[in-house]
Computed example of a mutant assay.
Amino acid sequence: MTDNELLARCHTVFPGHRARRPAEMFAAMAGWCEEHGIEHDVYGSGELIERFQDKIAKLLGFEAAVFCVSGTMTQVTALRLACQDRGRPLVALHPTSHIFVHERSNYQLLGHFSALAVGDRNLPWTADDLRSVPDRLGAVGLEIPMREIGGQLSTWNELEAIKAHCHERGAHLHMDGARLWEAQAGYGKSAAEIAAGFDSVYVSLYKGVGGLGGAMLAGSREFVARASEWMKRQGGNVIHRSPYVVAAAMQFDERLAAMPAYFERTRFFYDALAAHPGIRVNPAAPQANMLHLHLLVSRERALAIRNRLAEEHGIWLFNRAATGVLPDTSYVEIYVGDNMLAMSYQQIRNALALLSQALAQ
């Protein structure tokens, strides 16, 4: 039985939002389009996409925003243009940056820019991390929050210091805001307050939002127009963006409104984990609606436990597992969304008890 087949049989699912089958998703999109009189855009020109781009720009406090088919294309394009503007090809990135970890060396193989890993891979950035770089940087890319270390955030004071440092050094400050909406609750600040001082921001239309895919890049009107042109040159000029925009727009406000509730449920989940000392949690306290659970079993054993609990109890605890630094250890990611919000506190406690018992065997 495949993982997807096993997951489909479970009545209790911990991570993320409830997955809608294509027919259900497309029916919801069709109904929303009928209700709002939606027409297709043509190569990015149309009322729906233009209104949604303006909405994202205003939420982030920028002049403009533009749709892109993927965050991978969005980010390297923004950073390449920033480096070209300053005549400095070097970008500072955290060692766990999505560009390093998940983008198959695109920045290097496609000749976009040169990248420098800065800071401790297990800790969020401080301004001192950037001050330690003697080179003249063209750009700095900062992920908020940092997914690969459990959704951690630089402290607010450090974030402000990073902004000031980049401004003083004339470096373009770009935000990987794939999960920026989630960081609002952790910081207790609006997206615009967090984004203030950045020169450009990328946000995802599917991760926390639950859309089909796609991204937005926000910045000055001139910068966004240039980025839009370059994304077209790279093959991003699809004739209709409307499926991606509809899938995001129809649930965007509801998802953002639920972020504080997701964060509060994450806090409960974190507190419930204290009863199971065999499960270590990163970070030390929730900073977004995401946690990494470190387990004292191998990756293969963790997946076997997940599958057994799914088969015997109808509980799906996590999606992927990764190998830990120490032998016979692993870690898993829990993104707290609609699924866990719909569960009772006792359901969460009971499922954690089953996991803890299985890990101890």
Rank of each mutant, 00 (worst) to 15 (best):
A261H: 12
S242W: 00
A321E: 01
R88A: 15
M216L: 07
L352G: 13
A161T: 05
R104H: 14
V76H: 04
R255N: 06
S114Q: 12
G213P: 00
A353R: 11
Q357Y: 02
R301H: 03
L110A: 12
G211F: 00
G16K: 04
T96K: 15
A30D: 14
Q108C: 06
S228Y: 12
Q346A: 07
G177Y: 01
L123Q: 15
L116R: 13
A185M: 11
P283F: 03
A322E: 14
A164H: 08
L116W: 05
P124C: 09
G71H: 02
H313A: 15
V101Y: 02
Q361C: 11
R136A: 14
E103L: 14
C83A: 10
I56A: 08
L295V: 01
F113C: 12
S220L: 13
Q361W: 08
Y187H: 07
H112R: 02
W230N: 14
L7Q: 11
P95D: 06
G208V: 10
F52N: 04
G337N: 10
Y244G: 07
R9Q: 15
R147W: 11
N307K: 09
V101D: 06
D3T: 09
L93S: 00
E311Y: 12
I38K: 01
G46A: 09
L256N: 06
G188Q: 10
D328S: 07
S200A: 12
G150C: 08
G138C: 05
K189D: 03
I149S: 04
A78E: 00
W32E: 00
R308P: 01
L130K: 02
T77P: 03
V332W: 00
I149W: 02
R131I: 11
V209M: 14
C33V: 03
R308K: 13
A65K: 01
N237E: 08
G87V: 09
T2L: 05
R9F: 04
R169G: 08
P124D: 07
H11A: 14
E254H: 08
R147K: 10
A225S: 14
D54S: 15
N289S: 15
D271W: 09
P15G: 06
D3K: 12
A274F: 04
Q152Y: 02
A28V: 11
A30L: 13
M1K: 05
P277K: 07
D328N: 11
K232R: 13
A23R: 10
V224F: 02
A310S: 06
L109H: 12
Y187F: 15
Q287T: 02
R241Q: 11
L205C: 13
K232S: 11
E47K: 12
P260H: 07
C68H: 09
F14L: 05
C83L: 02
H112Q: 14
D199Q: 13
V336D: 00
A192W: 05
I49G: 00
V297D: 01
L48R: 03
N237Q: 11
P124G: 07
G337F: 02
F62H: 08
F14Q: 02
T266Q: 10
A302R: 01
